[in-house]
């Protein structure tokens, strides 16, 4: 091993806890080069743990916990990113109307459900592949997929109705909006600003007056 590599290795040993995963891997590679021997997987794992202990002075179990946490954070972040990319710029709902604001908040709240269902599908796939609970996994996967489709379909139908000015023109939807307003209170509205209640559409012009201005 040349002098430069040895210096880097020593420097890596000294830096201790600040090691990232990549530097640990590099360190392990240097150790392998140093020994110049054929190493089995078990031995490699033992060396890795030994080197890791030397470098960080911590128990390897803790490092596994950190790794699990790291991957769960990365995974949830990826899910959120995928969902936001799927819906980016596709909504036709006007954010400047009160109904638009309320509905968009509701749709964003539904992302929690979408995340949960995507996790369900992933878990069911893993269960189906690696365990004998095939029927459970299949049921879980199909159920989650159906609900995921239902949520997306519901959002699309809602978006279409708001865009065309149909939303809120029947008893069911009027009650839905009123219940939504009652349950959430007025904290969703921009105080003091006169904004429209419904989105502009050819059928709703007569009612698209600013809120706070009596007809």
């Amino acid at each position: 091993m040349d002098k430069r590599k040895r210096e880097r290795l020593e420097k890596a040993h000294k830096s201790g806890v600040r090691f990232g995963l990549a530097s640990r891997r590099t360190l392990l590679r240097y150790v392998f080069e140093l020994e110049k021997v054929e190493i089995s997987k078990k031995l490699a794992r033992e060396i890795y743990i030994a080197v890791h202990r030397q470098a960080t002075d911590a128990k390897p179990v803790e490092s596994y916990k950190i790794r699990i946490k790291f991957f769960s954070v990365i995974f949830s972040g990826l899910l959120s990113k995928c969902i936001s990319l799927l819906d980016q710029g596709t909504f036709k709902i006007d954010k400047d109307t009160i109904i638009g604001t309320l509905i968009l908040k509701r749709i964003r709240r539904d992302y929690k459900a979408v995340q949960c269902l995507l996790l369900n599908i992933l878990c069911s796939t893993l269960l189906g592949l690696f365990t004998s609970f095939t029927s459970s996994a299949l049921g879980m996967g199909i159920g989650s997929l159906l609900f995921l489709i239902a949520i997306k379909a519901s959002h699309k139908v809602l978006e279409y109705r708001i865009d065309k000015g149909f939303y809120g023109d029947n008893e069911y939807e009027a009650r839905e909006i009123l219940q939504f307003i009652t349950s959430d209170g007025g904290n969703k509205f921009d105080k003091g600003k006169k904004i429209r209640a419904f989105q502009s559409a050819s059928e709703t012009h007569s009612l698209n007056r600013p809120v706070g201005v009596k007809a």
């Binding site: 709240r109 539904d110 929690k112 459900a113 979408v114 949960c116 269902l117 369900n120 069911s124 459970s136 049921g139 879980m140 159920g143 989650s144 159906l146 609900f147 239902a150 949520i151 379909a153 519901s154 139908v157 839905e176």
Partner: peptide, 20 residues
């Protein structure tokens, strides 16, 4: 869709998970 599935999607999806 509201009545059958997603009046409260979070509760419904958690219900699916709970059942599984």
């Amino acid at each position: 869709l509201d009545l059958l599935f997603v009046k409260d999607p979070v509760a419904t999806s958690m219900g699916v998970l709970f059942g599984c």
